[in-house]
Amino acid sequence: MLSGLLMIVDMQNDFVTKNGSLYFPQAEKVKPVVIDIVKDRMKREYDLIFTKDWHDPNDLEFKRFPVHCIKETYGAEIFDDLKFIIRDYSKINFVMKKRFSAFYGTNFDDILKNLSPKHVEICGVDTNICVMYTVEELKNRDYDVVIYENGVASYDEKLHEFAISQMRDVLGAKIEKWRSFNAQH
């Protein structure tokens, strides 16, 4: 059965919680938006896919970025408010990834083939890294992609804007503003 799918990219403590190793203040603006999107899509019985950076302690990525999201640590977990909201929802898959794209070295392709979504909606962090590189591969597989611009963020506003323009103008993803759950009903 064709259905909608919401993908929540890397909303993990090391990125979006104060004192996280790669925390950035702009994450505070997207956390409530992501929560609102997730609540709405759960009410509509969407499938949810959460990506998680999931690194070994000696990952090669740490030559470019500070150590972050070591598997099985607090920093690698979904931030607490969101984790609480999804705790009893059954239509969830987690994709543990070691690189920017959710496809690289994961079972994400198989999950998508199994779920057969008619479109993929995206929110999360970082716009110019894991969001953009996953959107690129979704579009190369001919998925319709909607990105909620106010539900994604980056540590750098110029890179955020660049990534939004690349995903819209080059990759052909649809960019929308999320309207509050309460405003929709």
Rank of each mutant, 00 (worst) to 15 (best):
108 F>W: 07
47 D>W: 15
58 N>P: 04
97 K>N: 08
37 I>V: 15
92 I>R: 05
162 F>L: 12
137 E>A: 07
107 N>K: 13
50 F>Y: 14
128 N>I: 08
110 D>Q: 15
169 D>W: 12
84 F>K: 13
46 Y>I: 06
59 D>P: 05
143 Y>W: 00
97 K>F: 05
118 K>N: 14
85 I>P: 01
54 W>A: 04
77 E>L: 12
148 Y>H: 11
76 A>N: 00
137 E>Q: 14
53 D>R: 02
97 K>M: 03
162 F>E: 12
64 R>C: 03
80 D>M: 07
114 N>C: 10
55 H>P: 01
108 F>D: 08
89 Y>C: 11
141 R>H: 07
86 I>K: 08
91 K>N: 13
95 V>A: 01
161 E>F: 06
157 E>Y: 14
52 K>H: 15
147 I>E: 06
77 E>T: 14
168 R>N: 15
49 I>R: 04
43 K>L: 11
101 S>Q: 13
126 D>I: 15
162 F>V: 14
110 D>F: 15
99 R>C: 09
120 V>S: 11
78 I>R: 01
161 E>C: 09
130 C>K: 03
151 G>W: 07
102 A>H: 00
113 K>D: 11
119 H>K: 11
39 K>C: 06
143 Y>F: 13
163 A>I: 04
148 Y>K: 00
171 L>W: 15
170 V>P: 00
58 N>E: 10
31 K>H: 01
65 F>V: 09
149 E>Q: 11
37 I>Y: 09
124 G>Q: 01
126 D>K: 09
120 V>N: 04
69 C>K: 00
93 N>H: 15
138 L>S: 04
130 C>Q: 03
57 P>Y: 06
119 H>P: 00
48 L>Y: 01
65 F>T: 01
119 H>A: 13
38 V>S: 07
131 V>H: 07
156 D>M: 02
78 I>H: 04
125 V>H: 10
124 G>T: 03
162 F>W: 10
113 K>P: 10
59 D>H: 12
32 P>D: 12
97 K>V: 07
33 V>F: 03
88 D>R: 13
87 R>F: 07
150 N>T: 05
52 K>L: 14
172 G>E: 06
103 F>D: 02
63 K>N: 09
107 N>S: 08
162 F>G: 05
61 E>S: 07
115 L>T: 13
44 R>Q: 14
32 P>E: 10
